[in-house]
Amino acid sequence: MRVLSALVATCRDVGSDLTSLLLPLGCAGCGTWDVVVCRRCRGLWQQRPRRCESETVYLAAQDHPARPGLPVWALAPYRGGPRRMVLSWKGRSRTDLRPFFAAVGYGLGVAVGGELTRLLTGPAPPVLVLPAPSGWRRRLRRQLVVADLARAVGAGLGSTGHRVDVQDVLRTPDASLHRLGASARRTSRRVRLARRTDPRSLRTAVVLVDDVVTTGATLAACRTLLREHGANVAGAVVLAATPGPGSATWQ
């Protein structure tokens, strides 16, 4: 059954690629004719990244129980054009967005590099960049967009002088955590390490990468697992953040 699903997914991806080549498409953000991303929508991703953990449920600092916040940087609010673009990219309906988001991820890594330097005290340790886990269905279909994003972010961090290693070692045994509700994601034991992962390789500074953060439950579950193995989870990088009610970060 998995082999058949993978074959169907491959045929669908090939068809999508051919369609993108043969038929002119509009801007993925606003629909402007015959351009992958128009100048206005491109500018939405060229802002300085903003810290947004204070607007999440599970990543903001809390006194009861005592828990430090996890720095999270995002480029855009998850609404309007940015939301449409991320969904098209993740769903593989617009494979022509891959180079665009690779460039966005690289720039995000460059921008966060200086912030990371200020957070890490003492001699700079190697930085391990880890993509948030994808469900087995997405892995079977080779729709590992977050892993692609993590490689781009890692390259950007490396250009700022950090020693960077990118590994895809976080797993979910069944469905993706994004399919769960916030409380279920928080209490779920579905985040684990990939087989043959050496836990000793995690004992360094870690930066998590995901496409979107809403409540922060997925990143919080990853942080808990990694800390159990001795990792120093220094922060997280995402493309977009869902604005909360009355958001002061995304006005």
Rank of each mutant, 00 (worst) to 15 (best):
G31D: 06
G31Y: 13
T56D: 03
D34L: 11
L70P: 02
R98S: 15
A182E: 09
G109W: 15
C30N: 10
A66N: 13
C11H: 11
R84N: 09
R40N: 06
D198I: 04
P199F: 04
L119G: 15
L219H: 04
S188A: 11
A184F: 12
G91T: 07
L97K: 06
T160P: 04
V237P: 10
C30F: 03
T10Q: 04
S247P: 07
A194C: 05
T197W: 03
R203N: 07
F100D: 06
P126D: 12
L44A: 12
H178I: 03
G158I: 00
V35D: 12
P173G: 14
L180G: 00
L208M: 12
G31K: 12
R92A: 14
S159I: 09
R137P: 07
V3W: 02
Q167A: 12
L128C: 00
K90P: 01
C41I: 03
P24A: 10
Y78D: 05
R139K: 05
P65M: 10
G246F: 13
W250I: 03
A241H: 10
P82L: 03
L130F: 08
V209A: 13
W45E: 14
C38H: 05
R151T: 03
C41D: 08
D148A: 11
L128G: 00
R137C: 11
Y106L: 06
H178C: 07
A6E: 14
P131I: 06
R223Q: 14
T121R: 09
D198F: 01
R2W: 00
S20T: 13
L4Y: 12
R179Q: 14
S54P: 03
R92V: 07
M85T: 08
P133A: 06
V37L: 07
V104Q: 04
L18T: 13
G69V: 01
P126H: 12
R48A: 11
A217F: 03
A150W: 02
V36G: 09
A217T: 02
H162L: 04
P82C: 04
A241T: 09
R67E: 10
P123L: 08
D63T: 08
R163N: 11
D13L: 07
T117D: 13
A147W: 02
F101R: 14
M1C: 08
L21C: 05
T197V: 03
G154T: 09
L87E: 14
P82Q: 01
G109C: 13
S134A: 00
A124S: 10
